[in-house]
């Protein structure tokens, strides 16, 4: 699958823009968390969103998904301006996962995914109490789709397990399944591999490619540079709430300002990072442990700590 990413993404490869955020500003009192960020995501594209801690990545996500109402700017989804309400955003076709897992722990995996079906089903109180054939059909349909999605993310065997009993990596995948259950056109993943081991990270990458192949656009926040550079078609780097650079992984990873933003000083680290990322592009056995000495991967560990 890493060969797929080696092709330089030619712009016509992607379809029409799904998400167009223009001039998004988010202020909390005197603090400007997100300042004039523009982001366009096209159909079938995997967009990476990187930046040091506190760069405003998650805040930006919250602006996109209606959790926050941007102070300025607008977010267009498939050409229409989205109302700043999470429910309307989901209904329009944009789903998200959370940086710190927010599953419904005391529900089973299947039930979690079925909650994701909520906005695509419409059994109301009366229907639920009377339970005619239509209700049963809809319920069975939700159940079937949920089970398929669990199979899709590789959790089919755990459908009746409590979400809180699942291992960490599985919980992250369950969150993705739950988001996919809302039938999105665009999925926003907030650090989908945080806390995963290299093998799980590799599986997550594979999963994201498969999601893309279903025709969805994907936006990923990650700190793991290898992951981002080998996954994404384009990468958008935020620093202190402002766009630093947006471009192909190659452009971004060779931009000295990105490394500066992460590390603080432009010296030989830059070359190392670039060299390391290149090496990774050529081959990385899925089970290989993360190479220790690279500044980028060290950085990710610190960031998480």
């Amino acid at each position: 699958m890493s060969t797929q990413t080696l092709q330089q993404p030619a712009p016509p490869k992607f379809g029409a823009p799904v998400l167009e955020a223009s001039g998004v500003v988010m202020r909390f009192g005197g603090l400007t968390a997100v300042n004039n960020v523009n982001l366009t995501v096209r159909e079938g594209e995997i967009m990476g969103l990187i930046g040091p801690n506190g760069a405003g990545k998650t805040t930006f996500f919250n602006c996109l998904t209606g959790m926050y109402k941007p102070t300025e700017g607008e977010v267009k989804f498939q050409g229409a301006v989205l109302p700043p309400k999470p429910r309307a955003v989901v209904k329009a076709g944009m789903a998200r996962t959370f940086q710190n897992i927010r599953l419904f722990g005391n529900m089973t995996a299947l039930e979690n995914v079925m909650v994701g079906r909520y906005c695509r089903t419409n059994a109301l109180a009366f229907t639920s109490i009377i339970r005619g054939p239509k209700y049963h059909r809809e319920e069975a349909e939700s159940r079937r789709i949920a089970q398929e999605l669990l199979d899709f993310v590789g959790l089919g065997h755990t459908s009746e397990h409590l979400a809180r009993n699942l291992p960490y990596g599985d919980q992250r995948r369950l969150e993705i399944a739950r988001a996919l259950a809302t039938d999105p056109k665009l999925i926003l993943l907030d650090e989908p591999t945080a806390g995963m081991n290299p093998k799980e990270t590799e599986q997550a990458k594979d999963l994201i490619f498969r999601i893309r192949d279903k025709g969805l656009a994907v936006v990923v926040i990650e700190h793991d540079m290898r992951f981002i550079f080998s996954l994404c078609d384009r990468v958008h780097c935020l620093v202190r709430g402002e766009t630093l650079i947006e471009g192909s992984p190659h452009e971004v990873q060779s931009d000295h300002r990105v490394i500066e933003a992460y590390i603080g000083q432009p010296d030989e680290d830059e070359e190392e990072l670039v060299a390391e990322a290149h090496a990774h592009d050529h081959e990385t056995p899925p089970t290989a442990p993360t190479a220790p000495a690279s500044p980028a991967s060290d950085l990710t560990k610190e960031d998480r700590a």
Partner: peptide, 27 residues
């Protein structure tokens, strides 16, 4: 019947994590 339905699942989701429920499209 409400408890074991789409609505009941919505209620559980709200009890567990209202923000996440909202973000998953639950009214």
């Amino acid at each position: 019947r409400l408890n074991n339905s789409r609505i009941g699942r919505g209620w559980v989701a709200i009890r567990e994590d209202e923000k996440a429920a909202e973000a998953m499209g639950v009214n």
